[in-house]
Design a protein around this nucleic acid. Structure first.
Length: 203
DNA sequence: GCAGGTGGTGCACTTACATCA
DNA sequence: GTTGATGTAAGTGCACCACCT
């Protein structure tokens, strides 16, 4: 964690490590992939950013999560880092943001799935009960109508079937149907898939 | 206007290291 | 002191875009 890396141990000093291993990391940073000149002993050392550096980077990131040349240069100078380090920090920060958002989305989808499963169970149970009642007409005559909410699939109006005389707001077309004949019902329009744009829950 | 080369940038994936329990 | 888990700085490769010739 960045927050944990204090500069007390001196490890995070922006130039201490990098300058001491200038033949290794610094070279790799300035010219990627050309580490064949250092004899291969260039152990990659990690520079931990100080709290202050991380704070400034974080604030800048909040303003704008990408960098242009000018901003990168300015930040690098301000924080006593190399522009490449600022660039890498922003890349990793964007990756972390995306990962976090993906986790949030995943949790939301999980909850949504659970809710739908519950609803499905409930509806299946209701169908079973209605089927049973239909098979016993003498019971059917004395039953109270279901008190559950019913939604018209075509217009999504919700009716509360609270009285035995009428199912108040249900449409005639719907009421003439066998309520158990699911084949007559309009299919729920499929949700059109769209390209992933970071978060599907984002406004 | 079009094709090909080049440099810059972002992203996904990975590695290496620091830190902590 | 050792070890495994975790966080993160940095490396690598690819795709895309803008610009130039």
């Amino acid at each position: 964690m960045v927050a944990d890396c204090d500069n007390d141990n001196g490890v995070s000093s922006p130039n201490s490590i990098v300058s001491s291993i200038s033949g290794g990391v610094a070279k790799a940073l300035s010219s990627q992939g050309s580490d064949d000149e250092d004899g291969g002993e260039a152990a990659r050392k990690k520079l931990r950013l100080t709290k202050e550096q991380a704070k400034v980077l974080e604030e800048t990131f909040k303003e704008h999560n990408t960098l242009n040349m000018k901003r990168k240069q300015a930040l690098a100078e301000e924080l006593n880092l190399r522009p490449r380090q600022v660039e890498v920090w922003f890349q990793n920060r964007r990756a972390r943001t995306k990962l976090k958002q993906t986790e949030v989305d995943c949790e939301s989808l999980k909850r949504c799935c659970e809710n739908l499963s519950e609803e499905n169970k409930r509806l299946q149970k209701e169908v079973q009960e209605l089927r049973a009642l239909k098979l016993s007409p003498h019971l059917f005559m004395h039953m109270n109508p279901p008190t559950t909410l019913t939604m018209c699939p075509s217009c999504e109006l919700v009716a509360v079937s609270s009285t035995s005389s009428s199912s108040t707001t249900l449409h005639v077309a719907a009421s003439n149907r066998d309520p158990l004949d699911l084949s007559l019902r309009q299919p729920v329009p499929a949700v059109k898939p769209r390209p992933f744009e970071g978060s599907i829950f984002r406004p």
